[in-house]
């Protein structure tokens, strides 16, 4: 296990290095000159050149890259071209919205989907088993922004129970307001996420329910609950863990649409404006942190999978294959 941990850690670092090179090169390939964002419309060539010089985009790419890496190593994400503010604190402020939003939605989705998916598989011949499968079938077909619109119309505009969007100016200094403004977004993401999770849990449970070793355990006299607990859960959880990892990572970054529906100042909206304004440091910083998060979550998911399923330990990454 220790050897595996080292190998996997090395792999993580290599992936991160590769990803940062790809990220850097890709962003420089985007058309459009960030100097345009700094200068007024009729700027002279000298002014544009000065603007380029001030942000360093006139230097050769390798030099820009090493400069960026040096900054990263000292924990500096650079300075926004557009607002001239450091990117790090801005990202930090956005994370105060995005991280609670994502984690709460993720936990809620797991709490709903794991029992529901298990029931949908175990009770698939009853009406509520079929109903659960049907609801999750419906859930994966509903666009997340439309669900958000409907929840706003019902619970905010009609009933007036919750705010229809926005986040308090004071942030978490006004905890009650902050929580209230996150309730609907959390529910929106959790509903959509659990719809697809239910299908994975159901499928993993069905695999286990049909397996020989579970049947043998039952034939040897174990009760269903005991056979499931001793022989079923571990096996069913392996593929689900890898899906959970992907879902968590993609929700962290993919909350853009929900943030837009509820006008939340999160990481997604920061990235969206950054892209629109060709603000390299912002886009680069957000994407670098996101990649780091994706890799770390994958690392954690692989590790947990290997703790749960010793058969995987010889393999480097992944589990459900």
């Amino acid at each position: 296990m220790a050897r595996y941990l080292l190998r996997r850690l090395a792999f993580l670092l290599v992936s991160l290095a590769l990803a940062s090179v790809v990220l850097f090169v890709l962003l420089r390939m985007l058309p459009g000159d960030p100097a345009n964002a700094l200068t007024s419309v009729g700027a002279s060539p000298e002014q544009i050149a000065a603007a380029r010089h001030s942000i360093g985009s006139d230097r050769p790419l390798p030099e820009q890259f090493t400069h960026w890496l040096g900054q990263l190593a000292s924990g500096d994400l650079g300075t926004s071209f557009v607002s001239s503010l450091p990117v790090g604190p801005e990202v930090g402020a956005r994370l105060n919205v995005t991280v609670p939003l994502t984690l709460a939605a993720f936990v809620l989705a797991v709490l709903v989907a794991v029992p529901a998916g298990f029931a949908a598989a175990h009770k698939r011949h009853t009406w509520y088993g079929a109903l659960l499968s049907g609801v999750s079938q419906l859930g994966i077909a509903v666009p997340v922004f439309w669900l958000g619109m409907i929840l706003i119309a019902v619970f905010a505009l009609n009933a007036g129970w919750l705010p229809s969007g926005g986040f308090p100016q004071d942030g978490w200094a006004a905890p009650a307001e902050a929580v209230r403004s996150l309730v609907l977004p959390v529910v929106t993401i959790a509903l959509v996420m659990s719809a697809s999770l239910i299908r994975y849990v159901r499928s993993a449970t069905l695999d286990v329910l049909g397996s020989d070793h579970l049947r043998t355990a039952r034939a040897l006299g174990s009760s269903f609950g005991r056979a499931m607990w001793r022989h079923g859960l571990r096996n069913a959880s392996v593929p689900v863990i890898s899906v959970l990892g992907i879902e968590l990572a993609s929700t962290l970054l993919g909350a853009v649409v929900v943030e837009s529906v509820y006008a939340l100042p999160g990481l997604g909206s920061l990235l969206a404006t950054g892209i629109a304004q060709h603000d390299y440091p912002v886009v680069q910083g957000v994407l670098f942190l996101s990649t780091l998060a994706v890799l770390l979550i994958g690392f954690a998911a692989d590790l947990v999978q290997r703790i749960v399923d010793p058969r995987l330990r010889g393999r480097l990454s992944g589990g459900a294959r």
């Binding site: 990892g245 992907i246 993609s250 993919g254 853009v256 649409v257 996101s290 994706v294 890799l295 994958g298």
Partner: peptide, 11 residues
């Protein structure tokens, strides 16, 4: 491929 998949389509 795993990294690419973890990045949401929208991004």
């Amino acid at each position: 491929l795993d990294i690419l998949i973890a990045f949401p389509t929208l991004l």
